[in-house]
């Protein structure tokens, strides 16, 4: 860097500077409410989840079956309307053992997010979900897992109608 510059601008503050009022700041909380429409394809996906079925969609032109379902193929731009029920069984494509929540709180028992390749899809075509009912150390890529559903009366038509995926075999 140009050695002519003796010192660079930018003044570092510490948490203490804020807490003790060494510098002034303004706090505010923004509140925003939204109602997102699910749309055609995800609307059907949520209907399926409520009924205990994971719905994929096939592109007739690309001969490709993907999940989550979508109204059009992003690769060939043709409409996609061949909705197909998939098995609620798949393979762990990848996973993490996560010890912090989305808002950076530490947790002792890890959350186990994973990408799961469902049977009947054209890889790579996984979904993100959580693993459960398994000792974290035993989770591995390639593990066969099955969806654990909420009881039918508790389902709302949401991705959380699947509580988590658990190993097909113990341990």
């Amino acid at each position: 860097m140009t050695q002519r510059i003796a010192s660079y601008p930018g003044t570092a503050l510490s948490e203490e500077d804020i807490e003790r009022g060494h510098v002034l700041s303004v706090h505010d909380q923004l509140r925003a409410d939204y109602a997102w429409d699910a749309g055609l394809a995800i609307g059907l996906y949520l209907d399926g989840l409520k009924a205990g079925v994971i719905l994929g969609v096939r592109c007739r032109r690309c001969d490709r079956t993907v999940v989550p379902p979508r109204a059009f193929c992003e690769q060939c731009f043709a409409p996609m309307d061949a909705f197909v029920p998939l098995a609620d069984v798949g393979i762990v494509n990848t996973f993490s053992l996560c010890y912090v929540t989305w808002d950076v709180k530490r947790i002792v028992e890890p959350l186990i997010p994973a990408v799961i390749d469902l049977d009947g899809t054209s890889p790579p075509a996984g979904i993100m979900h959580l693993l459960g009912g398994v000792v974290p150390d035993r989770v591995h890529i390639g593990m066969r897992v099955r969806a654990v559903w909420k009881p039918a009366r508790a389902r709302q038509g949401a991705i959380t109608d699947i509580r988590y995926f658990k190993p097909l075999r113990r341990g």
Binding site: C98, L111, P113, L130, I141
Partner: peptide, 27 residues
């Protein structure tokens, strides 16, 4: 970063930005 994830199919799982990196790194 929560709001970068799909609001219907992913965000209800309370994803964390670290997840996508951890998942990609593991793969």
């Amino acid at each position: 970063f929560l709001t970068i994830f799909d609001h219907t199919t992913e965000r209800p799982l309370e994803p964390n930005l670290l997840w996508i990196f951890a998942l990609e790194m593991n793969r």
